[in-house]
């Protein structure tokens, strides 16, 4: 019984980290209609930067969130302004060009990470103690990372809901033409949004690497995990995304516990495929809004 409740709580905490992973992707797709296949590689990069900051400067991963966020934001700006916004999408199958570009970007980033950090699995030994709550013991690291992830997700939500800049982003997502007709510089909003989504991916990476070790080649798995969340939860639906993240957190934890890590990964993919076969259009097309 104690184990079951522990697993349940673990799963729910995992959900927070998943939520943050998916939110950047969600935002970028909602505003730019760009399917960013390099999302997982950006998460990995954020995590490995936090890893270096921890090992060379002794910076706690929670404090490292700020520099990671800033670095990935700049990287996102460069990618969006330098590549994505320059792709000519006119003509037959023009929309595929951006997809291929992010496919190439995924390999470019993953192998750059490989050059810098090598191919080993890395992890940050952060708050390795256990939190004892009556009969339950929970890892402190997960609790802290989960809290940080939920806090960031909430901040993003408030930013989008309450500030004029945030509303500008939502306006572009809901009607690009309407936004342009309101005098909003749609192009810059798109670039900014991509940078923001990238920074969120980096922050998620800095938290994930405290929980599970990953390597420079882990990107594609994380990309698909993020997509699974987005497809399950429905874009822009804060509650839906959160519920999906919790659900997948639970699946992850229980599959890990009963079947091992490989089976957990396989479960993710199978769930992704099966869900989409039941709902072929996904939820992307239907509610692609932020």
């Amino acid at each position: 019984m104690g184990t079951l409740v522990s697993l349940l709580l673990l799963g729910l905490m995992w959900g927070g980290v998943y939520l943050l992973m998916a939110q950047g992707l969600n935002l970028i797709y909602g505003v730019m209609r760009v399917v960013n296949l390099a999302h997982g590689d950006l998460i990995v990069m954020g995590g490995l930067i936090a890893f270096s900051l921890f090992h060379h400067a002794g910076l706690s991963p929670l404090l490292a969130l700020a520099p990671v966020f800033a670095l990935l934001f700049v990287l996102g700006l460069l990618i969006a302004a330098g590549v994505l916004e320059r792709i000519e999408e006119e003509g037959p199958r023009g929309e595929l060009r951006t997809l291929f570009a992010t496919f190439g970007l995924s390999y470019l980033l993953a192998n750059t990470s490989f050059l810098i950090w090598g191919g080993q699995f890395q992890s940050i030994p952060f708050l390795q103690g256990a939190l004892v709550l009556g009969p339950l013991t929970l890892p402190e690291g997960l609790a802290a990372a989960s809290a940080a992830a939920f806090a960031l997700a909430l901040l993003l939500h408030l930013f989008l809901e309450r500030t004029l800049t945030g509303k500008t982003i939502r306006a572009v997502a809901q009607s690009p033409l309407g936004a342009a007709a309101s005098g909003i510089a749609v192009r810059w909003v798109r670039v900014f949004t991509f940078a923001l989504g990238t920074a969120l991916a980096g922050a998620a990476g800095a938290l994930v690497i405290c929980l599970v070790p990953f390597q420079s080649a882990s990107g594609p798995d994380l990309t698909v995990q993020s997509f699974t969340l987005v497809a399950l939860g429905g874009l822009g639906n804060m509650l839906g995304a959160w519920l999906a993240a919790e659900l997948l957190g639970l699946i992850e934890v229980f599959a890990q516990y009963t079947l091992g890590p490989d089976a957990a990964t396989a479960a993710f993919y199978l769930l992704f495929i099966l869900f989409l076969i039941v709902r072929p259009q996904g939820l992307l097309g239907q509610a692609g809004r932020v």
Binding site: I87, F100, A101, G104, Y107, L109, N111, T112
Partner: peptide, 20 residues
């Protein structure tokens, strides 16, 4: 040998931009 895939990835991006 170590940069091969970086170059190939960059090549895809370059194709998408310049020679779609």
């Amino acid at each position: 040998p170590t940069e091969e895939q970086i170059i190939l990835g960059a090549l895809i991006i370059a194709l998408a931009l310049r020679l779609p």
